[in-house]
Nucleic acid binder design. Sequence first.
DNA 1: GTCTATAGAAGGATAGAC
DNA 2: GTCTATCCTTCTATAGAC
Lengths: 208, 208
Amino acid sequence: MPTDTRERLVDAGAELFRLQGFAGTGIKAILAEAHAQFSSLYHHFPGGKDELAEEVIRTTGAAYQELVKAVWDQADDVVLGVESVFEGAAAVLEATDYADACPIATVALEVASTNERLRVATADVFGDWVLGATLKFTEVGIGAGQARRLALSVIALLEGSFILARATKDTEPVRAAGQTAVDAVRLTLEALGRRSRPEPPSRPLHAG
Amino acid sequence: MPTDTRERLVDAGAELFRLQGFAGTGIKAILAEAHAQFSSLYHHFPGGKDELAEEVIRTTGAAYQELVKAVWDQADDVVLGVESVFEGAAAVLEATDYADACPIATVALEVASTNERLRVATADVFGDWVLGATLKFTEVGIGAGQARRLALSVIALLEGSFILARATKDTEPVRAAGQTAVDAVRLTLEALGRRSRPEPPSRPLHAG
DNA sequence: GTCTATAGAAGGATAGAC
DNA sequence: GTCTATCCTTCTATAGAC
């Protein structure tokens, strides 16, 4: 009733896949959550569970990128932007009892060696994220190679710390990873600044 | 080829869970892989699939820690040790067509919000890894807080880059994450060398 | 496009003979 | 401890009425 059936199916699938994974979520559970019928699912997604899952991966992947970008852009500079992303993620984890982290990570690991169609979908999403983060770093003058390495590392720190945080029900890994991400970006920027105008850092990088 | 039925069940479960996840692996598939019967599984593991999975998580978690420790210890110093771990992981990924990464990551995400018994098992394993890596860093004179933060970050970089690498079938994320991990450790050591005091005071980077 | 009903396979788990 | 046979549930997917 609130929205159209197709959208409800995607939303329900997104929530359950993120929480329980792909194999752990039955179609019937999705239908119940979406208040929809079998016929509706196979009408909107003739490819069945796989087609719905691909749609969920691509739409939630793009939505999450937008969310992160919004948080990032609200900060005054790149370093604070990265810091905000990790702080925001930690806050969401705590607020949702460590249920709500990356929308596609669980599915990505599940399908990596078992479902080529969905594997490619997750690869596309991660690829977009890497390109987006790389752009953030090149925009502040970091070279392409370094920017891409930083982007991959920041995303890896985020994803890896999500695993540790959800397993241990503790935000410490996210905060630790966030600090390392911040240090990596700051270090790269300072090395960049030393090339143009030599000025040593006024305080040590690692103080905590 | 283990002759013990119980061991064959654990090995088969380990391989299939790592590759397909927990929910995606049926008991019948494990029995077929292990050349065992239903009665054998429920004889050795009265708790059924959950009990087998917990055993798999704890044993493969400990085994992986030993493997990483062996690679790490073979290097001449901490920085080269960390570098070797990431290089070794990338080599294994390539050699196994991106199937063989972390033995428990997929299951950890699957069960984090759905199976408390298995969630605790994965948390225990990750906790042991963090303690082990922390010890490596304190052994070279890094303070407890910094060492733990580095340990959490290195493990997060490893786990996160595994997700990206398996999804994209490319080792680039692992090599990028490895470089960031190496830089973080090296930077901490250099900052340590610049200090006269053996233990720097713990203080957040961004006050307020 | 939505409803009910059901097929056909696979899921986890158990019983009883030996 | 191992074997065969089986129970009941859940799974994905389809059929056919409306």
